[in-house]
C-alpha cells in the first residue's frame, strides 16, 4: 500500500470519526445534512458486501467495519438521539436524496466491470458516493455559514479525495494491469464537486466573510 492510499484512508477515517465524536460530545448536529449521511451509509453498506465473501487483509476488514459502524452511528444519532435530533436543520435539509439513488442504480446496471450482483453493487456505491455530498452542499448554501464542524468535515473529505487520486496515478504507473475506469471517473466527478466547494470556502475565508455559495 502506498503512502497516498494510506493518507487517503486516514483522512476519510478522520472525517467520519471527527464528525461522530463531535456529535457525541456537543450533542449537536447543526449544519450536518442527514440526507448526505444516509447516502454514505448506503454507499458503505453496498460497497462492503464483500466482507462476507472475500478476505483481502485485516486492515481492509477493520477499516470497512469502522466506516460502516461510524456512518450508521451518525445516522442513528441524527434520527434517534433525543438531544442531537433537536439540533438537526430539518427544514433546510430538503434535498430529495432518494432521487439520486435510482439513477445511480440504473447507471450501475448499465456500466459495471462485470454484470454480477456484487459488481453492480460496487459500481452503484461508487456512483452514489460521487454525488452523496450534494445535500450537504445545498444545506451549506441554504444556511450560508460554515462552522468549524462542517468546515473540518468537508476539508477532511476533500483531502481524502485528493490523496485517492494521487494513489490511482501512482498505482497506474507502478502496477501492471491496474486500470479501473469506473472508480477513476466517478472519483473525479466527486472531487470536482468538492473543488467547487473549496473555491467558495477559500474565497470567503480570504475575504473574512461568511461562506456564501452562488444560488
Amino acid at each position: 500500500m502506498n503512502m497516498f492510499r494510506f493518507l487517503g484512508d486516514m483522512t476519510h477515517l478522520f472525517s467520519v470519526l471527527v464528525l461522530l465524536l463531535k456529535i457525541h460530545t456537543i450533542k449537536s448536529c447543526a449544519g450536518i445534512s442527514l440526507k448526505t449521511q444516509e447516502l454514505y451509509a448506503i454507499v458503505f453498506a453496498t460497497r462492503y458486501l464483500d466482507l462476507f465473501t472475500d478476505y483481502i487483509s485485516l486492515y481492509n476488514t477493520v477499516m470497512k467495519l469502522v466506516y460502516l459502524g461510524s456512518s450508521l452511528s451518525i445516522v442513528w444519532y441524527m434520527r434517534r438521539h433525543k438531544l442531537v435530533r433537536r439540533s438537526y436543520d430539518k427544514d433546510q435539509d430538503t434535498f430529495r436524496h432518494h432521487f439520486l439513488i435510482l439513477p445511480c442504480l440504473i447507471l450501475a446496471l448499465l456500466i459495471n466491470e462485470k454484470f454480477t450482483f456484487m459488481e453492480v453493487m460496487w459500481a452503484f456505491s461508487l456512483y452514489l458516493e460521487a454525488v452523496a455530498i450534494l445535500p450537504q452542499l445545498v444545506l451549506l448554501q441554504r444556511t450560508r455559514n460554515i462552522d468549524n464542524l462542517t468546515g473540518q468535515y468537508v476539508f477532511l473529505l476533500g483531502a481524502y479525495r485528493s490523496f485517492y487520486i494521487l494513489n490511482w496515478i501512482y498505482r497506474y504507473f507502478t502496477e501492471v494491469h491496474y486500470v479501473h475506469w469506473i472508480t477513476w471517473i466517478s472519483g473525479l466527478v466527486q472531487t470536482l464537486l468538492y473543488g467547487d466547494f473549496f473555491y467558495y470556502y477559500f474565497h470567503s475565508w480570504k475575504n473574512n466573510e461568511k461562506l456564501q455559495l452562488p444560488a
Binding site: T53, T116, F117, W122
Partner: peptide, 10 residues
C-alpha cells in the same frame, strides 16, 4: 459468487 475483480481499495 466471489469477487474475481481485485477491489482492494476502500
Amino acid at each position: 459468487e466471489g469477487r474475481d475483480l481485485n477491489h482492494d481499495e476502500l
